[in-house]
Design a binder for these strands. Sequence first.
DNA 1: CAATGTCAAGAGAGCGCTCTCCCTGGCTGA
DNA 2: TCAGCCAGGGAGAGCGCTCTCTTGACATTG
Lengths: 335, 335
Amino acid sequence: MTTAQRPTLEAVARRAGVSRATVSRVVNGSTTVAEPIQKAVRRAITELGYVPNLAARSLVTQRTDSVALVMPEAATRVFSDDQYFPGIIRGAAQELEAADKQLVLMLAGSPAGHERVERYTTGRHVDGVLFASLHGADPLPGRLARLGIPVVCSGRPLGGAPVPYVDVDHIGGVNRAVQHLIDSGRRRIATIAGPQDMVGGIERLTGYQAAMTPAGLPEWVAYGDFTRESGATATRQLLAEHPELDAIFAASDLMAHAALRTLRATGRRVPDDVAVIGFDDIETAAYTDPPLSTVRQPIREIGRRMTRQLLRLAAGEPIEPAVVLPTELILRDSG
Amino acid sequence: MTTAQRPTLEAVARRAGVSRATVSRVVNGSTTVAEPIQKAVRRAITELGYVPNLAARSLVTQRTDSVALVMPEAATRVFSDDQYFPGIIRGAAQELEAADKQLVLMLAGSPAGHERVERYTTGRHVDGVLFASLHGADPLPGRLARLGIPVVCSGRPLGGAPVPYVDVDHIGGVNRAVQHLIDSGRRRIATIAGPQDMVGGIERLTGYQAAMTPAGLPEWVAYGDFTRESGATATRQLLAEHPELDAIFAASDLMAHAALRTLRATGRRVPDDVAVIGFDDIETAAYTDPPLSTVRQPIREIGRRMTRQLLRLAAGEPIEPAVVLPTELILRDSG
DNA sequence: CAATGTCAAGAGAGCGCTCTCCCTGGCTGA
DNA sequence: TCAGCCAGGGAGAGCGCTCTCTTGACATTG
């Protein structure tokens, strides 16, 4: 417990011999305060160690200077060792720091968590809400948008809610990757697709098809959920159904990593017998055996752009409804 | 922009035909309100969609119902693919959710960031502060504690500030790991130590020494900063100085992973020629080649316990100044 | 030289909530 | 019967800040 009461505007004003209003003006950077008075006020502020009470400020300004970052992922995937969420967090934190706003992190894995997020965000306890990686057609972003609360999603929201989003060019990136496999002579190219209730999962599969169909090649698909375990299962399944396959595109690096191991366990050499390309370019990708070729997506940049869009929205500025960032094919040794 | 003004206590009170005070009592769960009135108030609340204004509440209660989680790591290491921070975040988020409090995330990598954290936390904008993984002897936790602001650190704070903390048994875990190497016949055991300005780095080295010295074995130390790059460099250095080494204990799994690869690149077999044991038990550890033996630390549990301690502190309850969680030796194939 | 304009600074009204009184009325017990 | 006592509910004073409105001092103009 502090014994010393925190100094208030009033105290600063008395000490500087001015009114509360003037101190407020100085604190908030108004230019209409004469130089000597500004100096006196600032001195009083440092002498007293004055820090504005944000609750009081919020009460009158109707702003909170904080934004929520919601991660509605199932607990298993969030924070597995893929770096999606940490990347988004860093990008967002960086932009918010520049804007001097706070980042409130909310995990909405459980139904209770989701309800809590809803209560909190609809209660306008934040100036805006960032959604990282929606699952399925969550109605919450649309509902918030309709309430007039600024919202930006990472990844195009399924269900067609008119919510601004930032995403990467999944289709183009995967298309290039699969085209590269075709160009290097592969003809029996399978894919481990991601979950089909997430836009990333859907579009990466579309990208695969967009390269395979025009080439007249057979499309072999197994489904995973982006994790290593699911990647191993899917690889075994593909090998059982199509033992002659000579390449695999996996919709995540974790699944690609598992494919690498599973292929080796069955005596296949990578890339000699089977080429493998992943998606994400996680840190580990450069350290697999062999190093993994992959489609890089600029995760931090997604977080940054989302935040910038949100801040504009909150400031009442118009923004484009969709920002799509480029992906890049990183060729290492696996394919 | 919302056109509809948010309903206030006043509005609910009018609708329910009671006073503001009574509504407040119902909202805050006072028992001294008669059943029928409670019902009426609750109905008015749902009908109007009333959500309390937290700023207004904070202003009078002097609580914010939020706690800050500060990550003062250098940008390079935070959120590399080791799972320390995500783990802490999840653990903390989980406990805070149960207590219905918010998690405010602050990255204090840069000097500006650190200054921002200081301003924010000393300004009492949160009910308590969690520090994850201090670097060096940061004076901030001690300063906050002296201001009467609840603080809990992950890892014993260097510099001897009397701040409660939650840590794992680094020394015991490493000791067991190195002892295991000795027991399995290794005699030329080197270590890749972590940064010596972090308590984890220091104590893991101590653990190594605590096993080696009594056994009368030579102590070979190279230093890294927990990252893969530093692990590779350290391994090369150790091999140059002691080509005859037959085991390496690395103070992080990332460094151990790099050691695995570097050893293989020099033609050594793991574990036949050189055994390797890491620390952390990150997800990737089970997927290295060969799968990595390591000392597991319960990261999520650290986050949970820190938060529990903090909440107790904030509630004015007494807590033990240090909580030390056990570590566990996980034997896979590398050593 | 009076009238007007300009700009800096103060006064004061809330923002939406909690919480401490204080009042009311229905019961109890002597 | 009536004082005495609660439990339940209302009144009202702020919490610390922002912001509009107003005042006051001085410069400018006809």
